[in-house]
Write a protein that binds this DNA or RNA. Structure first.
Lengths: 219, 219
DNA sequence: CATCTTACGATACGGTTGTTCAACAAGGAG
DNA sequence: CTCCTTGTTGAACAACCGTATCGTAAGATG
């Protein structure tokens, strides 16, 4: 008298779609428990799929991890490429602290990934490419801003410093937000650039309004 | 006709000594393969001890990890407390890039640990204390340097920025030294502080002589 | 020498790891 | 409808995970 299993017992997705679902589930696992929770069982349970799918669609668990890393970088640079973001150095900082990028889950994921890159040649290769592109974009923005203000800076060097400072405040906030709040982290970045470029006009509360975050995780 | 097992079959150490040996072996494993390689089997094999010893001396694997983290912090702050280090802001930077602290193995270990802190309350508690102390020391040094130069700075805020910047260049160099060399990383820190304090006198090649590193790892 | 404390080695345990594989079925093509 | 491609399942696998527990023996003590 149990419910008749009339309908399909599972759904078939394209390899691309299922891959995206597995990546999404993997991100959830990474955010929840770090690289230790990045296991086939956890991920497939989160994705409500059987355990064979990771190997089937990605070839191996490591390949999935590489795809996860690429996805994280894509999402980060996507924020920079948004058409409606603020121009110049201010936009640079605000993009760094955009809620889509700067949130507890993402920071935990970055921390977990950084710890693995040193041990995974594939991840390191992806990083090298993406980081180079990111650096170019930051340097270009800073050079333009400096030129518009009649200042002369070594844009490349400053870009490296700026990205490193961003990574640093990400680390501190990701490890323990009570030690370095999001606001203090952003203020650090402003102070750093203002020392080189002069006063920067912080945006009104408009783009800072949605600080509340994405709400409680439905765990 | 094999060699007679006359001598002792193993050696007994004090709990303190054996604990230090296990911590040392754990550090080697972390540097070699990240948190994934932090396993009872790996560590005890590295320490040439049987697998029961971690539980016996530390109670659990997690407790050993906490001890490992404390050891890393101890060694880092020990460099700051060295009597013969350079005074003021220059000493601050040079301590950060002391070969005893800034080397590929240590950076890999920090990266691996940071990824776990977010998932381990005990580690986070240790971090909170040590980080606070470190920040106090950095802020004090910066305040003195600024006062001696007649500059006024928010020492606390600058200390946070400086530590974050240090963490950031550590991350970048640890992930991929070809992207941000040790020299460029140190120069970034100098540029940052010089913007606030004025020119700093970099030390002669004396303390930079031993850059060569600890030689190839005997893997 | 005998005695005692306790660090130690070895093993067993249930659970989890990533991967392989054969049977299966969803869903489009003819 | 039948056929066929292929995404999917779930079991099976050996290797490894962290821990508990046993008897043993190192080495200090008297």
């Amino acid at each position: 008298m149990t419910k008749k299993p009339d309908g399909p017992r599972f759904r078939r997705y394209s390899s691309e779609t299922r891959g995206a679902m597995l990546i999404e589930a993997a991100l959830v696992c990474l955010a929840r428990g770090g690289i230790t929770a990045f296991t086939v069982d956890n991920i497939c349970r989160e994705a409500k799929a059987s355990r064979g799918l990771i190997t089937h669609h990605f070839g191996s668990k490591d390949a999935l991890l590489a795809a996860v890393y690429a996805t994280m970088y894509d999402r980060f640079t996507a924020v920079f490429d948004e058409g409606d973001r603020l121009p110049g150095a201010v936009g640079l900082i605000e993009a760094n602290f955009d809620p889509a990028v700067f949130n507890p889950e993402s920071l935990k994921i970055w921390l977990a990934l950084w710890g693995e890159i040193a041990n995974n040649e594939d991840l390191r290769a992806v990083h090298r490419q993406r980081y180079q592109d990111l650096l170019d974009q930051v340097a270009r923005t800073l050079a333009e801003e400096a030129a518009a203000r009649g200042k002369t800076i070594d844009a490349r060097s400053v870009a490296v410093q700026f990205v490193a400072l961003s990574d640093g405040v990400w680390v501190e906030n990701g490890i323990d937000p009570t030690m370095l709040s999001r606001e203090a982290a952003r203020e650090s970045c402003y102070a750093f650039l203002e020392n080189l470029l002069g006063a920067l006009a912080r945006p009104a509360a408009a783009s800072i309004a949605e600080i509340g975050g994405p709400g409680p995780s439905s765990d």
